[in-house]
Design a protein around this nucleic acid. Structure first.
Length: 229
DNA sequence: AATTAAGCCAACCGCAAAAGC
DNA sequence: GGCTTTTGCGGTTGGCTTAAT
């Protein structure tokens, strides 16, 4: 009963990928496209589980990855989107071509959080901090984050409950970045970019601020409409 | 030079949703 | 309709690198 493991763990490698493994994966995907991750390792001659292959490809080997430092504009986009979406890294990544959800998540946790703290802003709620926090080490942040209720969407749920929403609503159309188009993808599944855009609707106390950001970055959001107050 | 602390990021894990049968 | 399998996401961890002492 229950789910079977995604792979036979006793026969799979773990840990860092070797150059040879990378090359095998690249070669296979260049020929066959990505997808079918379950069967890919065997077909590609890799002693890895499918999940591991998928992660390696998406986060590291994909040829359309930008890599390198985040720009100030990207910083601001991430902050704006996080204000709206919370820890929906895949959705945020979908708006940042060449960036992966993992990369953005790491960048958020290591850079942006600290930046916001230093500005007296709570990175989860995007509201001013009640008390200044002094401990910002990796360890402390991990511990505090795990101890806190860490609702990934606190700005969309908990905050709304604790702080009655203002009468400003925002609708946001999330178009998805077609990062998979780089390969001929025979996989009918997992093509997020082929789905119809998802419409998010919620209230935000910072709508006024967000509206300014949006109007200054129209290429990020296809459309937004403040609802009538 | 050695040790410790902090920063960073690739990779793993568990879960939920979607898809397939 | 229900069960199983597969995929994708978000949280977390391990280990490497760099900075500080």
């Amino acid at each position: 009963m229950g789910r079977s493991p995604c792979c036979e763990k006793q026969h799979t490698n773990k840990g860092a990928w070797t150059k040879e493994e990378d090359q095998r994966l690249i070669n296979y995907i260049q020929i066959h496209g990505d997808g079918c991750w379950r069967s890919l390792p065997k077909a590609a001659g890799l002693l890895r589980c499918g999940k591991s292959c998928r992660l390696r490809w998406i986060n590291y080997l994909r040829p359309d990855l930008k890599r390198g430092n985040f720009t100030a504009e990207e910083d601001q986009i991430i902050i704006n989107l996080h204000t709206l979406l919370g820890n929906k890294w895949s959705l945020i990544a979908a708006r940042l071509p060449g960036r992966t959800d993992n990369e953005i998540k790491n960048y958020w946790n290591t850079h942006i959080k600290r930046k916001l703290y230093s500005q007296g802003i709570d990175p989860q709620t995007h509201r001013p901090l009640a008390n200044n926090r002094s401990s910002t080490s990796d360890f402390d942040r991990r511990r505090e984050d795990s101890n806190s209720n860490s609702s990934s969407n606190s700005c969309l749920t908990t905050e709304v409950e604790e702080n009655p929403p203002l009468n400003l609503n925002l609708e946001l159309s999330i178009g998805l970045h077609p990062h998979n188009q780089i390969t001929k993808n025979p996989n009918p599944k997992g093509d997020d970019h082929q789905k119809a855009p998802v419409l998010f609707k919620f209230c935000s106390p910072q709508t006024e601020l967000e509206t300014q950001h949006f109007s200054s970055t129209p290429h990020i959001f296809r459309y937004y409409t403040p609802s009538p107050s």
